[in-house]
Design a protein around this nucleic acid. Sequence first.
DNA 1: CCGGTTGTTCAGCG
DNA 2: GCGCTGAACAACCG
Length: 242
Amino acid sequence: MPEGPSIVILKEAAQPFVGKRIIEVAGNRKIDLQRIHGQTVQEFVSFGKQFLIRLENLTVRIHLLLFGTYRINERKETAPRLCLVFDNGEINFYGCSVNFIAADLDQLFDWSADVRSDSWDPQAAKIKIKHHPDMMVCDALLNQDIFAGSGNIIKNEVLYRIRVHPETLIGNLPDSKLAELITEARNYSFDFLRWKKQFELKKHWQAHTRKKCLRCDLPFSKRHLGKTNRRSFFCINCQVKY
DNA sequence: CCGGTTGTTCAGCG
DNA sequence: GCGCTGAACAACCG
């Protein structure tokens, strides 16, 4: 479900509830959900993989993790972690983390790190990533402080596009390749969003879960790499280790 | 039917 | 206090 672009889709789907009052709250999350009963939705915000529901005096933060799902105006068999009912419908969240944030969102979130947002700042990303010369590029693309919203699919697709081996250290990456890395992290996020909306995301995968390289026809390597130890699909022939 | 995963946090350890 | 590891969470696909 949830790399950043999927959260953008959720935000768009939830728009009918902006300005609406929560007339009923339920869910199996072990916090006092009734705190938000009666509050009005000011706006829905996406930040990376997080979905924020900004209310009058606090914000609900939802993270769908690996398996989280949601339903709008319908319910699943299983009990929702959080259910919000409005006078024009309801939204249900399952298998996710739910927390309340009382702090100012601008203090908490670095909006410039969200690769998919208008606030994305590639120059800021360049400065941040250069602080980690010993970090592998595969870990950098999963670092939410630098590339908020980028996940394992985006990681694999971006590294294949720019022909860089996932174990390349940031400090060894030529400046031109670093620039490509930052540019393509954003580009692929937009492609991901467009394809996901058309229900054809998987069709466009060139690296993720693929068995062989489209460029040279050699078998892909599939290994768990980096400190994040996540699946990497890559071509040792076409992707250069700097 | 089982194994694996588009993710993150936290406890426990050395 | 640090970094590392593994567990926990929980749903769906192949």
